[in-house]
Design a protein around this nucleic acid. Structure first.
Length: 648
RNA sequence: GCCGAUGUAGCUCAGAGGUAGAGCGUUUCCUUGGUAAGGAAGAGGCCACGGGUUCAAUUCCCGUCAUCGGCUCCA
């Protein structure tokens, strides 16, 4: 007998070599039908694998990450089986489950796959699921596995097997389709009730640009048709919130082929929105002791040779600009820090004066590969809400905490609740890739980790992801399509102070080297506005809405009165427009609703004679009659309740 | 940059080897209206750009550019 401990700590006895599915059945048949995998002492297993010793277990259903992973991983095999049947001779790379579904990288030889082929593959997959074929786990000696794939001419699998250490390789069989795989899998394919193949893309073998590009097929699967329908609806909703679409509809920004790709043009309404955000952050930063500075858009090549960026990125940046007679070379600035270092150097600082926090909304230009450009989230010219903090090493942690405070305040004001802080640390085995001493790195990383702990941030720690000059903390936010975007970032830099020979005078009257922190709470105005737009689906909070109020006269007889109301609201600095088109009120309301304008003021005979406005709120409807002053007061109070700039 | 797809009016999209269409928007006129679409008429297109095949190309083929989905990259 073996002792099986359940998640609720209860313990039951089972015969030796009991399997997950048998345990599930002992609880109920219904559970057994819905369980997809099992954790045995923390390791995820197939349901059919015998448990030989006492174990702590957890059964995974669709509601668990591990359950979904088993379903999707099995679906990837199922898809591969279908593809092999339809396109014999296809070679297979890897086919894992991912956050939302699965993919398989395949090599079809000379054949190409088009989206029109996907329904055929889906159909074949359904045929196979109808047969209720089981997944059979097999252990095969490495040599035998190699021979199998060599005979199949599948160099990808051969490469994978060669890298495995184990003498025995696990395989899974699904009908005639055999695949190298660690597992775990569903017991059989029947729980895969609904499948949708979503897209085809190219992907380099093993993510290496220099190697062969394979065809990657993405898909997703569900245990119920209804869940698939819901998922497809969610994708549709996400498309509606896409900032590129909303940006065009709401006239926030545009691109012009004539100006150049990846170079956003901020339209009046978008510029309005961005300016409010900038003013807001400037105010916060002023209170937090930042000193605004302004630097030019270009810098001499020598500046970047000094900073080290020329060496590292010179070949991948925009070509230099040169002066006609002297032949001096300038670069568009790809970051603001070298300029700020030079500002720091204009005078001498005492240790008592640190930290010095230089802030600038600096526009920078970076050459991004054409395939990388994406709406406002990935562009070639953008404005960072940048600042560089020059501090003493002993101030590092405290400064980190202060920056985190600002970031949290900003995100809270904009209603971002779901973000993650990613701490990127150096890889201690590859010290040669980094600048600075191991001791400094460890100190800085400790300061970051402690700061995040004190602020109670949700964090992911990734080793080896640090920049070459220092560890960093990135704030990651997901867009509507579940793509992760880095917004704010806080980075420690030991490199630039060294290269620029920055110094301050210590209490010992000796020169010391400051530490530098790069930080931007928004990241870039472009990316932030993009993510914010998707976050609120274009329904910006009242204080940010480019257009806060629209006045809708019932007919042009009330045009004069509408103008009077407009002037009164303008005095309160409430952003107001009049819709004086020759249209019926219903039409004007409908249009104002689709334009997502927070408040509509309907004015006609009644309002004119009483000196009032009829207020209608976006998506909520009629709020009744207000005097213009009391309406203005309502708006001002509402903005204050959302964000009180004077009280930050 | 790489793989694949796409490119027709301001926007969303239909179309076909014989010189182009809808809805929304826009303009003008009629209508002067009360909480999500009043009516009529008009304007608007080098069918992304450059080559080729053809009597004829916006349509077929090739190339370029841009956009989209990924991959790689991201100071």
């Amino acid at each position: 007998m073996v002792k099986i401990t359940f998640p609720d700590k209860s313990v039951k006895q089972f015969p030796e070599r009991v399997t997950g599915i048998e345990i599930a059945k002992s609880i109920s048949e219904g559970l057994a039908r819905n369980v997809f995998s099992i954790s045995v002492n923390g390791e995820v297993w197939d349901l059919s694998r015998p448990i030989e010793q006492d174990a702590v277990i957890k059964l995974h259903t669709w509601d668990d990450k591990e359950g979904r992973a088993a379903m999707w991983h099995s679906s990837a095999h199922l898809m591969a089986a279908a593809i092999e049947e339809l396109y014999p001779g296809t070679k297979f790379g890897i086919g894992p489950d991912i956050e939302n579904g699965f993919y398989y990288d395949i090599d079809l030889g000379n054949r190409t796959l088009s989206p029109d082929d996907l329904p055929g593959i889906e159909k074949k997959m359904q045929e196979i699921t109808g047969k209720k074929q089981p997944f059979i786990r097999k252990e095969v000696p490495k040599q035998e596995a190699l021979e199998y794939y060599k005979k199949k001419n599948d160099e990808y699998k051969v490469e994978l097997i060669n890298e495995l250490e184990d003498g025995y390789i696990t395989f899974y069989e699904l009908g005639d389709f055999v695949d190298l795989c660690r597992g775990p899998h569903l017991s059989d394919v029947s729980p895969i009730k609904a499948v949708k193949l979503l897209s085809i893309a190219g992907a380099y073998w093993r993510g290496d640009e220099s190697r062969k590009q394979m065809t990657r097929v993405y898909g997703i699967a569900f245990p119920k048709k209804k869940l698939l329908d819901e998922y497809l609806e969610m994708l549709e909703e996400a498309r509606k919130r896409d900032h590129r679409k909303i940006g065009r509809e709401m006239e926030l920004f545009a691109f012009s082929q004539t100006v150049g790709q990846g170079l956003p043009l901020w339209l009046p309404k978008g510029a309005q929105l961005r300016e409010i955000l900038e003013k807001f952050l400037k105010k916060v930063q002023l209170k937090a002791g930042y000193l605004p500075v302004i630097t030019p858009h270009i810098g001499n090549k020598n500046l970047y040779i000094l900073s080290g960026h020329y060496d590292k990125y010179g070949d991948d940046s925009f070509r230099p600009i040169s002066t006609p007679s002297e032949g001096e070379e300038f670069f568009l600035k790809p970051m603001n820090c070298p300029h700020h270092c030079e500002i720091f150097k204009t005078r001498q600082y005492s240790y008592k004066e640190l930290p010095v926090r230089l802030a600038e909304f600096g526009t920078v230009y970076r050459y991004e590969q054409s395939g990388e450009l994406h709406g406002l989230t990935r562009v070639r010219g953008f404005t960072q809400d940048d600042a560089h903090i020059f501090c003493r090493p002993d101030q590092l942690k405290e400064e980190f905490i202060k920056v985190i405070d600002i970031v949290q305040l900003v995100y809270k004001a904009l209603n971002f609740k779901d973000y993650n802080a990613q701490i990127s640390l150096h890889d201690p085995d590859n010290m040669k890739d980094y600048i600075g001493s191991a001791e400094n790195w460890e100190k800085a990383e400790k300061a970051i980790i402690e700061a995040t702990e004190e602020k109670g941030l949700k964090t992911d720690i990734v080793t080896g992801e640090a920049a070459f000059y220092g560890p960093k903390l990135d704030f990651m936010v997901k867009d509507v399509l579940n793509r992760n975007w880095q917004l704010g970032t806080i980075q420690v830099d030991y490199n630039l102070p060294e290269r620029f020979e920055l110094e301050f005078v210590g209490s010992d009257n000796q020169k010391h080297r400051p530490v530098m922190i790069h930080r931007t709470p928004f990241g870039s105005m472009e990316r932030f506005v993009a993510v914010l737009t998707e976050h609120c689906a274009g329904k910006f909070p009242l204080w940010l809405a480019p257009q806060q109020v629209i006045i809708l006269p019932i007919s042009d007889k009330y045009q004069k009165y509408a103008e009077k109301v407009l002037n009164l609201l303008n005095n309160y600095e409430i952003r107001t427009l009049i819709d004086n088109r020759n249209e019926k009120t219903g039409k004007k309301i409908r249009d104002a609703e689709t334009r997502k304008i927070p408040y509509m003021l309907i004015v006609g005979e009644k309002e004119e004679s009483n000196d009032t406005v009829s207020v209608r709120k976006h998506q909520e409807g009629d709020l009744g009659s207000f005097s213009v002053d009391s309406f203005a007061e309502k708006i001002i109070n509402e903005v204050k309740s959302l964000i009180d700039i004077n009280n930050l």
